[in-house]
Amino acid sequence: MSATGAASKPARPIARLAYHSTVTCAAQASVYGKCITASYLDVSKDMCSAEFAKFKACLRESMKKRQ
């Protein structure tokens, strides 16, 4: 993602990430969130990495597409 490209695009990358993480990939986000919430009193690194990997795969796929 080159800086000049990001500047000329109408939506900033962060806005697109916001959109995709809450709308496009809402289902995967919810699965990941539930995994954390299930044991949020004892969180360790990569505790929900499988769920996050799916969430991230969805994000990566939708960030590729131009809206």
Binding site: L17, A18, S21, T22, A29, S30, Y32, G33, K34, I36, T37, Y40, F52, F55, K56, L59
Partner: peptide, 12 residues
């Protein structure tokens, strides 16, 4: 981390 936080915020 931001995307993860957004998901956690909503669920929690």
């Amino acid at each position: 981390t931001l995307a993860a936080a957004s998901a956690i915020y909503k669920e929690l």
